[in-house]
Design a protein around this nucleic acid. Structure first.
Lengths: 352, 352
DNA sequence: TCCGCCATGGGAACCGGTTGCTACGGCGTT
DNA sequence: AACGCCGTAGCAACCGGTTCCCATGGCGGA
């Protein structure tokens, strides 16, 4: 059992003090660096620190007022590319600003969200960031509003990142992107090619992100004086499997359409495979578009026309905005723009 | 400024005690739930808690011995699909076991790793999990060995997840998968189709993961009595862009090969696009294989033959093994199996 | 040579909790 | 009616730090 030297499970500041022959306050000051300490004393202390391999307990520091601030983010599933990019932005900016990051995923079970936020409040997180869309229900709004109040009254802050605002009055920072606008532009582009029956492969029917995109889909139709056939909007979730399944079903049901807009690049990928499997070619037989512009999108064949969303920037802004906020200030609400990336998966409909 | 009720920035247990007309210890006991308290007292305390919207400071609890344990993981970039899946496994298992998760990403800058681990040690994390491969240098091994000792002597534990062990003697838990074996089987499969010149699109030349796969590539050749042409192994990183660039370059340089094995599905995706752009078809003109089996792989066209790695399981095992470990026990080293999933991107070479 | 100041280090209170030990009061026994 | 027990709540010590405030000692200046 000859471990380096400090084999006592954990040494405290008093152990260091004893070994250096000084008081605990002196050790604290040496480590703090702000207070004048003689070179000799500093040397003795540092040696003791090294010999004991001592690191001050961050929790004790925190409680005493010093200590690294912490920030928390909650998302549904880190595995989804858009979530991952937002998380990445959050994490990068947080560590740039010297914050630690706590993370939880809810696996889509909305009840966990409440629980997690409560834990984060107990951790005295400087901000709690809810990343990505969610199922929107009156109960959700009310619950989340309460969380926002709780957090605010504890000097913390609730941030909605990639999720629409709650009812006005909730003390929240909102960083979202123009979800509906992106879909609108994308679908307008598809319609401009001459398509009249475009299938929409949506996410869950009550999901804020899916709904926003669906609204854009509908608005683009109406703007052209078109009345979209309700039977052309299908719901699933945001996975490639959902896209695959939905597309197969639509084909099997003999739905009539000349273009497909998927709620997500992932969904589009699954749909594309189903199309291929059915012997259809894109975009000659049917056009296909996605949403998110994940790196993979250009490697599909044909390269996927999609909407670019600045996910990472979204995450960065979420933390920056929340952390730099002055307590009295009005609630911020940022709306980032999106743009469609035209690649090869959308073309004119086959002449009939 | 009429916020709910507790607009004082944060209420302490003593505030609650005062409001309920009891002592702080009583409040603690009511909240703890283990100690007998009369119904009347409990009621008064709970009311005060509700009115003040009180939550006990988790850091203070932790320092006092109660408190939620924490676990930390460090990875290069959450944005990579394989990292994301491991992270997901870690996070899920950690919360299942009632642990909080701290996360840091190093952005490939290995120096951060040390810094982060030190912070995690200060946080008294129950375990620190290093997720994914890394650049392997003598300095890295020595540094990491020291981290392991530090952590061990503080009652914590260093876990290597998806990364090979250090020199024996380092107190580490290692959960890795058969990186080399997977590559061996995959390349053997490619060679069995009759290919003799297969291009290897590798990651960074000193990266443990890239190297393991490269070893498998070489071993498979040798097992067949083949001596692979060194000019056929190219290095980049694990992104689709690297795959795209490397493939373009190889084509431009007039390298001769009938199959391509990419270090990663991402790399394969970029390579596939470059191949398409050059007017080549897969697998008729050239075969292509990847590694990782990310969900997207089957949506490439043709569907990608690749090696499946149980990433999520890897993450889960990392935390379970580390947390369930009994202090005296010998160091664990788990090696998970991989298997190749045969899809449509590998075929016999074109008859010449 | 004496005085006073400043540099330096220690003591103790405090951060916000938990918990062992003790004291008190009400109840059931005999 | 007196005794004793038990259920309940409070005091105080402690977790591991930080920091305010004060004491001490060495030095320079007059």
């Amino acid at each position: 059992m000859t471990r380096k030297s400090g084999d006592a499970s954990r040494s405290t500041i008093r152990d260091v003090a004893a070994r250096a022959g000084v008081s605990a306050s002196t050790v604290s000051r040496v480590l703090g660096g702000e207070y004048p300490v003689s070179a000799a004393t500093r040397g003795r202390v540092m040696r003791a620190v090294r010999e004991l391999d001592y690191v001050a307990d961050a929790r004790a520091k925190a409680i005493a007022g010093a200590g690294t601030p912490t920030l928390a983010f909650v998302l549904e599933d880190i595995t989804g590319p858009s979530f991952a990019h937002m998380a990445h932005g959050v994490e990068r900016e947080a560590t740039r600003l010297g914050h630690l990051c706590l993370v939880c995923s809810t696996e889509g079970d909305v009840r966990y969200e409440l629980e997690f936020v409560e834990m984060m409040r107990a951790q005295r997180a400087a901000a709690v960031i809810l990343v990505g869309g969610t199922a929107d229900t009156p109960e959700y709004r009310e619950r989340t509003h309460r969380m926002a109040d709780s957090l605010a009254s504890a000097g913390s802050r609730l941030v909605l990142c990639g999720r629409p605002p709650l009812d006005p009055g909730a003390p929240v920072t909102v960083i979202e992107y123009d979800n509906e606008g992106g879909a609108y532009t994308l679908v307008a582009h598809v319609l401009a090619q001459g398509h009249r029956r475009v299938l929409y492969l949506g996410g869950r029917a009550d999901h804020t992100t899916a709904l926003g995109r669906e609204r854009g889909y509908l608005a683009a139709h109406r703007a052209r004086g078109l009345d979209p056939d309700p039977s052309l909007v299908l719901h699933g979730d945001f996975t490639r499997d959902a896209g695959h399944r939905l597309m197969q079903q639509a084909l099997k049901d003999g739905l009539e359409f000349s273009a497909v807009v998927a709620a997500t690049d992932m969904v589009a990928a699954g749909a594309l495979t189903a199309l291929h499997e059915a012997g259809l070619t894109v975009p000659d037989d049917v056009s296909l578009a996605g949403y998110d512009d994940i790196p993979f999108a250009r490697d599909l064949h044909p390269a996927l026309t999609t909407v670019h969303v600045p996910y990472e920037e979204l995450g960065r802004l979420a933390v920056r905005t929340a952390l730099e906020r002055t307590p009295g200030a009005p609630d911020e609400h940022l709306l980032l723009g999106t743009h469609v990336v035209v690649r090869d998966s959308v073309g004119p409909p086959r002449a009939r």
